[in-house]
């Protein structure tokens, strides 16, 4: 785990008009690491995540992924995005396609795989999230937890080197959260690199290698979960941690 980071965010800045959301963020994620970002709403967590695959254009600094600066104009961002999966809070499944259709689309159109092979790989990815029996269902026939697992399969099917999770369980009913966390736990066991923005503190304690606390566009503190939750060094972290229920 001591090799050079697969994702290296350096001095990243982002503002919307006058509002500065990221004020120079440095963050490194090594291969096979699960890094959790926590912090109050409006702290810039999601923006940081979305800058990592350029869904948001940054205004300064660099994001080095696997040796390439993805903020550079010359980078073929579509090629990079195959290697960085993303899972959204609101799933964003394509409602006009079945579960396997959702997973297969990028395999067919980005990786240019023949239809049969794409569907086969899509089913394998759905099997990995425990949904092989729902391959032909449409999103509106699936529960929220199932939809989110299909979305994870959609990201995994491209065999990414890393997956970004943007509050993957926030839109779910409490009883459905477990199934999604279960899939994330399996991914960690399999050695997937993950960067997660989430409010699931118990999961963070149990599964994260490192927890990063963000506030007002800065990284305030980072460290192993025992330290950030159990013995926070900075007053703002202490304040935040004391107010969340465990």
């Amino acid at each position: 785990m001591s090799d050079s980071p697969i994702l290296d965010v350096q001095g990243l800045r982002k503002s919307y008009g006058k509002l500065e959301v990221l004020k120079g963020v440095d963050l490194a994620v090594r291969e096979r690491e699960l890094v959790f970002i926590i912090g109050p709403s409006g702290s810039g967590k999601s923006t940081l995540l979305r800058c990592c695959n350029r869904l948001e254009e940054s205004n300064g600094g660099a994001v080095i992924f696997d040796g390439t600066d993805i903020t550079a104009k010359s980078t073929n961002i579509n090629a990079v995005r195959q290697k960085i999966g993303m899972v959204f809070q609101s799933f964003n499944l394509y409602p006009h396609m079945s579960a396997e259709g959702n997973v297969a689309l990028a395999l067919r159109k980005v990786l240019k795989r023949p239809k049969a092979e794409a569907l086969e790989r899509a089913r394998a990815a759905l099997d990995r999230v425990g949904l092989s029996d729902k391959a032909e269902n449409y999103p509106n026939q699936l529960s929220g937890g199932q939809q989110q697992r299909v979305a994870i399969a959609r990201a995994l099917a491209l065999e990414p080197k890393m997956v970004l999770f943007d509050e993957p369980t926030s839109a779910l009913d409490p009883e459905l959260v477990g199934s999604v966390l279960e899939v994330m736990r399996d991914l960690r066991t399999a050695g997937m690199t993950m960067l997660v923005v989430s409010h699931e503190m118990r999961f963070a304690r149990e599964a994260a290698d490192r927890v990063v606390f963000m506030d007002e566009g800065h990284i305030v503190e980072e460290g192993p979960p025992e330290q950030v939750f159990g013995d926070p060094q900075m007053p703002r972290t202490r304040d935040f941690v004391s107010r969340i229920d465990h």
Binding site: M86, N92, H96, L105, A106, K109, V110, R154, L158
Partner: peptide, 29 residues
């Protein structure tokens, strides 16, 4: 919704592919 295009782009689809395969079919419906 913009989430649809974001999801498509996050899997590496180009802008044109996103419009053709993800946005337009839903728009027309």
């Amino acid at each position: 919704g913009t989430g649809q295009a974001e999801a498509a782009r996050s899997t590496g689809l180009s802008g044109f592919q996103t419009t053709t395969y993800v946005v337009l079919p839903q728009a027309i419906r």
